[in-house]
Design a binder for these strands. Sequence first.
DNA 1: CTCGTATTGTGAATTTTTTCACAACTCAAA
DNA 2: TTTGAGTTGTGAAAAAATTCACAATACGAG
Lengths: 206, 206
Amino acid sequence: MKRIAENTINRLIVYKKELERLRREDVKNVFSHKLAILSGFPSHLVRRDLMNVGYFGSPAHGYDVVELEKCISDFLCTPESVRVILIGVGNLGRAILDYCQQQNPKISIIAAFDSDKNKVNKIYHGIYTFHIDSIKNFIKENDIKVVIITVPASEAQKIASEIVDSGVRGIVNFTPVRLQLNEDIYIENLDMMLGLEKVVYFVEGG
Amino acid sequence: MKRIAENTINRLIVYKKELERLRREDVKNVFSHKLAILSGFPSHLVRRDLMNVGYFGSPAHGYDVVELEKCISDFLCTPESVRVILIGVGNLGRAILDYCQQQNPKISIIAAFDSDKNKVNKIYHGIYTFHIDSIKNFIKENDIKVVIITVPASEAQKIASEIVDSGVRGIVNFTPVRLQLNEDIYIENLDMMLGLEKVVYFVEGG
DNA sequence: CTCGTATTGTGAATTTTTTCACAACTCAAA
DNA sequence: TTTGAGTTGTGAAAAAATTCACAATACGAG
Ligand SMILES: NC(=O)c1ccc[n+]([C@@H]2O[C@H](COP(=O)([O-])OP(=O)(O)OC[C@H]3O[C@@H](n4cnc5c(N)ncnc54)[C@H](O)[C@@H]3O)[C@@H](O)[C@H]2O)c1
Ligand SMILES: NC(=O)c1ccc[n+]([C@@H]2O[C@H](COP(=O)([O-])OP(=O)(O)OC[C@H]3O[C@@H](n4cnc5c(N)ncnc54)[C@H](O)[C@@H]3O)[C@@H](O)[C@H]2O)c1
């Protein structure tokens, strides 16, 4: 399979989400132009991307909403169910526990971890919180590949190094720390401040 | 001034943050190679980016940490102080109110807005919450250019359209909705689910 | 059936981004 | 002073992403 650019993946995920919505609204077909408006990318890019996933529409009816959604899902290899854990049940961590459950039934946070005795063995938004010391075993026993990190910045590097040893392959990192890891781990840095600074740049200067 | 790519801006912001940290640790000089490791980008890209901002290091000592940080800041036009507002003081909104204040003293959230009577006129993390009905006036009177949106998905489009009318130029959108706006507004979509899905893709499939 | 309209799919051109590779430079040590 | 090690800055090459432009297609109206 041809290696697909990260930007393309981003866009595909957006298309998928919009298709999902169209399906719920019982829309049957959609043209590249419409998908372009919904997603915010130009229509020829939409078509180019769909070429990559190997879905073909009809010049008369555009794309079949259900089929295309399925096709993109398959392409993205979204398995029926992915189990993820979250580390750091603070302000942000709890908000995410709540949010994720509403959003994507295929990706489920199956456990949370914290070092704070007051939080351990509690349930937040339906998810049980274990003590951080048990995390390595948990990752191995449950074959966890993806982890969300929402601990304080000062703890992030240490935690990240440890979980990578246990076999984690991907990290969603909400801390402002750039994690340094030896192995080839996929890291998605979601630093909100960076997003805010970018907007300020484009508004004030660029 | 030459138009700079969004990716470059992203990287510059990361460099700036790492330089800030080096400065606090009292490091005086840094080589492109070191900055590359800290930021996670290759060193020739670091050098190319710094070429863009017009800063020149010395082959012997690399880059002066303080000067380079200043230079990038100036390039990004980061003004001494930018005033931002946040709409939707829910789980996520409150977490952000807290976080932003710790992070970047130059960007300050000066007010929050909500429609819930129980939240209006309250102070969260030191920031006063006004009723949403007063937002248009507030934006105009305080010349607000950047807004953070953390209202429920169902409210996002309506709110966005309204504030754009009042003169807002940039939006940090935490809702999963792709906002449709006529004017040329800079929108930064920070959909966490998208980040998580991307990690799942690269771990499971790509 | 034929025509007109609207859309797709894609080769090719263009633009942008990244990487390569090395001359030029700085300094320290001999 | 001269050499050597290590780094920068950058032209040029390569790779990648995006846009263009249009032939091919499908369908409905007349
Ligand atoms: N609040 C935000 O909106 C926001 C936004 C972006 C990024 N962040 C970042 O996300 C992280 C969390 O932010 P927050 O506001 O939720 O902080 P928080 O202090 O509310 O939560 C941190 C949680 O991590 C736990 N913790 C601390 N050390 C731990 C360890 N070694 N192992 C396991 N758990 C540990 C704490 O007990 C606490 O529950 C921070 O790095 C912050 O910079 C926060
Ligand atoms: N919780 C998360 O981690 C998370 C993550 C990503 C995205 N999001 C998105 O961010 C948004 C907020 O999430 P949340 O968990 O904080 O939800 P929430 O329900 O806790 O908070 C929403 C807030 O918006 C206020 N509000 C509702 N309608 C309003 C209006 N018309 N004007 C002004 N304020 C209004 C509500 O009173 C409430 O205070 C949602 O769109 C959610 O999808 C949340």
